[in-house]
Write a protein that binds this DNA or RNA. Structure first.
Lengths: 298, 298
DNA sequence: ATGGGTCGATAGATAACTTCTATCGACTAG
DNA sequence: CTAGTCGATAGAAGTTATCTATCGACCCAT
């Protein structure tokens, strides 16, 4: 039964019988049979099929919702029982927005000291993808913006507030300033994240409300790439302060606070709103609450 | 997997492999194998066994907790999908304290009008048993005292407040009074519920705090039996007002309000605190909220 | 139109698992 | 010390699950 529920979870993720089967480690006929069997037990079609996958029926959507919960709880149970015997073990799967990647280490490092047998996998994803991954049980926790995009059935722990800096060469225009305004930043050609990233959308909004427009010279989904360009001294970018600090400032590159308004976005940990949580996840929440004050103070 | 979880739920209820197996509709070796297999998957012993069942290990208790949730959710899923197609169907299992039995009809009657395909099973149980049955998924809802005995993970809907009456023959001592005090009631030989019932414990407490003592002439776990005795005109009892009204007062039997203090106990619906609820249960909660004001007004 | 490619369903064989009956061994109570 | 209860075990029979191979529908490009 639970295997079957796992099947339709995979199907919801992959939207493709073959790939879903592969994800479950079974062949496509097995997965097809599993879904069909589930449909038999429920007495309703769950999946609309033509000659290919065409989404779920309303009943299928409901089963999907339940399946997330039931499968999640089953995993949590296994985890919990296992951790009763061997302490925390296993793999903690985290996804973070690119601008928060630098501070993940502030969470994972003390976590690892307390629980040395837990392994980590960290993905860089957009804030929207992070919520999807959480829904689909593909990650255990996310680090993303809190309180902006609609967050579903999740619990959140605020970690720190993102403040923006203009990263630019000291000898570029504005390079000698101690603070700049968003209106001024709007005049500079920038390297920014691609528009599917919420950070970019936030910056666009700030630029626009300062009367400017967002016409970045260069876009990328990688902060590393953006920073590498700034590093040459010939490009500028807008980044959260924490990230700029982590990537390392040189003599020639300055991180200038952007005021008027000083934009602040709260970044935090996001975990499935399920009680009780998986022990590894619960421990991460504990760690986040412990670390948050330090991050804010810094 | 879910079958196995069902096994240990049955085992927790029955505390006996053979009976648990019977409850699950399998033979005892099958249940034994199922539990053993679960233990294999978890990597821990879940049940302490000598030559007989000796309770659960700590890990077993945790698995039990999860199993309640997972099995409950699985049933709720089936129910919900089924009700999407056929409207509400199935059987609603309710347990109520004896003094509340009379008002269950106030809930089931309008419910049945809205959902004619739902069948009911109603048990008379003590308030403690009701909470156990809820825990073990043996009932879908309970009707019992709210806010006195420890209620676990349940949601409650207040239904009405229980006010006490002295039921006695008009020509008995106190029979001509319009109100009596608990101190006066303490002087009368009474027919009361057995002490395992919370109603009895409440009345005992009230009598004692009025300086009296509880020495009932007759005890029973059946309100019908108590009422039948009062009906002869030769016995007296203390009952909630609603119950007395329902059982029907004759010319010779009076229900006299007991004041000083006017004791009030809130009675309400108790359902598992699980979101979302099973549709049949959710509908009962809706009905309870609808009916409660009428009951209070009456 | 038509042929190559993709997708999911189906058929049939095999492997794996589940459940049953029958029985055993340990323990308990009279 | 014996009868009875309880849960574990053995072995057979039946069921179910999964795999490989293939089919049929559909899409799209030529």
């Amino acid at each position: 039964m639970i295997d079957r529920l796992d099947f339709i979870l995979a199907l919801a993720r992959e939207r493709h019988f073959g790939r879903a089967a592969e994800a479950c480690g079974v062949t496509q006929p097995t997965l097809s049979a599993g879904v069909k069997q589930l449909e038999g037990q429920m007495g309703v079609l769950l999946v609309n099929r033509g000659s290919r996958f065409q989404g779920f029926t309303p009943e299928g959507e409901r089963v999907l919702e339940w399946a997330r919960r039931i499968v999640g709880d089953t995993r949590a149970m296994r985890e919990e029982i296992n951790s009763l015997r061997h302490g925390l073990t296993g793999r903690l799967r985290i996804a973070a927005i690119p601008t928060a990647l630098a501070m993940v280490a502030a969470l994972t490092t003390p976590y690892r000291e307390r629980h040395p047998n837990v392994q980590f996998t960290v993905w860089s994803r957009t804030s929207i993808e992070i919520l999807e991954l959480l829904d689909n049980l593909e990650i255990d926790a996310g680090i993303t913006y809190l309180g902006n995009e609609p967050v579903g059935r999740v619990n959140t722990v605020p970690l720190y507030r993102e403040r923006y800096r203009l990263l630019t060469s000291a000898d570029a225009p504005l390079g000698n300033r101690d603070t700049v305004t968003w209106a001024e930043v709007a005049q500079v050609p920038l390297c920014l994240l691609t528009p599917d990233m919420q950070n970019r959308r936030i910056i666009d909004r700030l630029l626009k409300s300062a009367g400017g427009e967002s016409r970045p010279t260069l876009e990328s989904d990688s902060m590393i790439l953006l920073f590498a360009h700034v590093r040459t001294g010939r490009w500028a970018s807008v980044m959260p302060a924490k990230l700029a600090e982590t990537l390392g400032l040189t003599d020639t590159i300055r991180a200038i606070p952007i005021l008027e308004p000083e934009a602040v976005q709260t970044i935090g940990l996001v975990v499935p709103a399920r009680e009780p949580m998986m022990p590894v996840t619960a421990a991460l929440v504990v760690e986040a609450k412990r670390v948050a004050p330090q991050l804010e103070a810094a």
